[in-house]
Write a protein that binds this DNA or RNA. Sequence first.
DNA 1: CTAATCTTGTGAAATGATTCACAAGGCCCG
DNA 2: CGGGCCTTGTGAATCATTTCACAAGATTAG
Lengths: 207, 207
Amino acid sequence: MKHIAESTVRRLSLYLRFLESQMQRGLETISSGDLAALGGTTSAQVRKDLSFFGSFGTRGLGYSVPALTRRIREILGLEREWRVVIVGAGKIGAALAQYEGFRERGFRVAAVYDVDPARIGKSLDGVVVRDQRTLDADLAALQADIVLIAVPPEAAQSIVDRVARAGIRGILNFAPAALHAPPGVMLRSVDMALELEILSYALAASK
Amino acid sequence: MKHIAESTVRRLSLYLRFLESQMQRGLETISSGDLAALGGTTSAQVRKDLSFFGSFGTRGLGYSVPALTRRIREILGLEREWRVVIVGAGKIGAALAQYEGFRERGFRVAAVYDVDPARIGKSLDGVVVRDQRTLDADLAALQADIVLIAVPPEAAQSIVDRVARAGIRGILNFAPAALHAPPGVMLRSVDMALELEILSYALAASK
DNA sequence: CTAATCTTGTGAAATGATTCACAAGGCCCG
DNA sequence: CGGGCCTTGTGAATCATTTCACAAGATTAG
């Protein structure tokens, strides 16, 4: 299939959120304009986004809410459950381990790791923190699909290298560090301080 | 000034990180190629990014690390301290309140709010959780610049409305909800489940 | 059945971002 | 001091994304 822009995938996720909330209200159909209003975009953008994957709408009427919901979940790969391993059980790692939003959307936290003996053995919402030395060996048995990195920035790259070698193909990094992954491994970063700096720029520039 | 793309500002933040680490090592100058290698981009991109704000380099030599560091900090509005208020003291809010990365980069957590009596009064790294009912009235006295939203998704929009009315012009939202801010208010969202869904898409599509 | 009204799907146009390519400037060595 | 070697700064070209605009399909009302 042709390459799809990340911005398109991001919007599909948003549409899905909205569709799910509309489904709960029992709405049967929805137009591209309605979907656009939520996402802060335009109806043409919505139709173009969907058109990359086929044509799911009915002219004159709009989209079937249940059918489009199902189709987007399928496109995003959300039919299945994804098994997530968190590395780092500090403030951020612990908060992620207990975050409801992951479970709700089909991401199951299979294990949490740390190096600190004071943290190892503690339970976070039913998941016991394990010794990071066993991480590499455990990954296959855990059937882990995705690794979340929540360790100090100087330790982050070595985690990427280790889990990539162990066959992990998806990594979401929360450490404020610029990391590099080998080809075939998808690495994304969420950098909270950096997001604040973008706000800082905007506030300072608009003065 | 001409409008600057968000992707450019994002990269400037990354360059700054790298420059600061090079400064500690005492390096005097750096080339666009070196900066590019870190950010996973190209030397032309680095030069173009910087060229929007002036010309700071020396042909044949590169950029002065201290001078470029200072200049980027200035561009991003980071010479001053920004006062941040966190709304919501649940798992995520508490983790954000204690996050080192903010303090390190000049963002000072001035106050934390919650509605839950069980949380109000507790201390998070020296900041006492306050009653959310006093939020609107407190904001001016706190001289808050930026609000971080870490409340349940259904409560998030009303926080945006309240703090915008109180004069806040920068908001960073961590709730998985599509929010809308009035004109003149900069609103960004960090949606952790959505980042996982983008990974999910990539993993499912590459099969 | 026809007319009026919606709303999709999609080429084409417009806009935006990145990459290319090279002249110009500055350093260093002999 | 002159030649060789780097590296910047920047128009122009390429590539990507968004917006426009409209034909075509589908519904509803009379």
